[in-house]
């Protein structure tokens, strides 16, 4: 009885060692936690078994799946909403960003906030890109933070567009 359970658990650990896909790894981890909670039960630790069922095989896989989903988000906050950039189909700016996110396998998340403060926005919120319109030359300014790796990639995609200017901000810097 015990030895079958131990064999199954070691079998699942070895499967997890060889698995390359993250989602399947999480499912195997949930099964592993269930088998572990059966063993806790057999060792007369009923309370530990209950906690392990609730946390190990339900809550933790949920955490992992949420974390995997969040990694693929590209969060854009836009101060402008006009014919160049809005959420309608066929806007040139929107299409450019969509091309970028599609080519790097990201999910685009756009918020329109007309009074977003750039000071502290990158530090306090999980923003990747802020879009403004410059009053001086009428260009659209794409603000990204300096430490992000994505600004090199985005710059490579949007290099040739004359309507767009890039600004790189240090994380704590005031920009006006």
């Amino acid at each position: 009885m015990y030895l079958i359970l131990y064999g199954l658990i070691i079998f699942f650990i070895i499967i997890m060692l060889r698995e390359k896909e993250s989602l399947r790894l999480i499912i195997y981890f949930a099964i592993f936690s269930l088998l572990m909670s059966v063993l806790y039960f057999l060792y007369y630790a009923y309370d530990v078994a209950l906690a392990e069922i609730a946390i190990g095989s339900a809550l933790l896989p949920l955490f992992f799946i949420i974390a995997l989903g969040k990694q693929k988000n590209f969060v854009v906050v836009s101060r402008v909403e006009d014919e160049f950039f809005s959420e309608k189909e066929g806007c040139p700016g929107f299409r450019l960003l969509e091309r970028f996110t599609d080519s790097f396998d990201l999910t685009l998340d756009i918020f329109f906030e007309h009074h977003v403060q750039i000071k502290g926005a990158f530090r306090e919120r999980n923003v990747d890109l802020i879009i403004l319109k410059s009053h001086r030359d009428g260009k659209y300014v794409f603000v990204m933070k300096k430490s992000s790796i994505l600004h090199h990639k985005l710059r490579r995609v949007l290099q040739e567009d004359p309507r767009i200017r890039f600004e790189i901000v240090e994380e704590d810097e005031i920009y006006d």
């Binding site: 070691i10 650990i13 070895i14 997890m16 060692l17 993250s22 790894l25 999480i26 981890f29 592993f32 936690s33 572990m36 063993l39 806790y40 060792y43 530990v48 392990e52 190990g56 933790l60 992992f64 974390a67 995997l68």
Partner: peptide, 29 residues
């Protein structure tokens, strides 16, 4: 031991975190 081996040799960060949990459950057992 298998959990520590996975923690040390996995190349993906999520996999390392999962093996940290495996070690923890084994220590409880």
């Amino acid at each position: 031991g298998l959990g520590l081996y996975g923690l040390a040799t996995s190349r993906h960060l999520i996999k390392s975190i999962i093996f940290l949990n495996v070690v923890e459950a084994s220590v409880i057992l």
